[in-house]
Simulated assay, not measured.
Amino acid sequence: MSWTQTHRRWQALQEIEALANAGCTDLPWNTEYAEIFGDREALADVLRYRVRLTRDTQLDSHLAEAVLEEQRRRLEARQAAVLTMLRRFDAGDASYAQVVREQTVLPGPVTAA
């Protein structure tokens, strides 16, 4: 991945996190995101990875228990909006599922098997 591609990807992720923090609960999607991530599932996977990586790197098991719990609470609060977005995506928003069905159904009569 080139520096330009890495930078575009990083900017897109920051943009998506800002949308989530502003109240957007649907996983955003546009042609730029399609170019960067390929599909919505890949975008969701990258967001999940960022959440895990942030937790793994910022929750040091060598910290005192009280400090570790406080850090965990801060991380959960900071990641809450993105996690809400991911849960909604994982639950399969009905309107999104309907659009996918409409795009994948071939025209023509339905026959019984």
Rank of each mutant, 00 (worst) to 15 (best):
V51L: 08
L63I: 07
P28Y: 02
N30P: 00
D56L: 14
D26K: 00
N30H: 05
L59M: 03
E41S: 14
E69L: 07
R40D: 03
T31G: 06
Y33C: 09
L68E: 00
R48P: 15
Q58N: 02
A64I: 00
Y33F: 06
D39W: 11
F37T: 12
E65Q: 14
R40T: 02
E41G: 11
V46T: 07
T25Q: 14
L68S: 04
A66H: 09
F37Y: 15
A44Q: 09
A64W: 09
Y33H: 09
A34T: 13
T57M: 10
T25N: 12
L47C: 08
A64T: 00
V67Q: 05
R52Q: 09
R50F: 07
E35A: 07
W29L: 04
L59K: 03
V46S: 04
D26P: 01
T57V: 07
D56C: 13
T25V: 12
N30E: 04
V51C: 10
T57D: 09
W29I: 06
L27R: 04
V51I: 12
D26M: 02
V46M: 08
H62D: 14
A34K: 14
L53T: 14
V67D: 02
L53N: 15
D56Y: 14
D39P: 10
S61W: 05
V46E: 04
L47Q: 06
L27F: 01
R40S: 00
A64P: 01
T57A: 12
D45P: 10
T31R: 03
L27G: 00
T57S: 05
F37A: 13
V67M: 05
T25C: 11
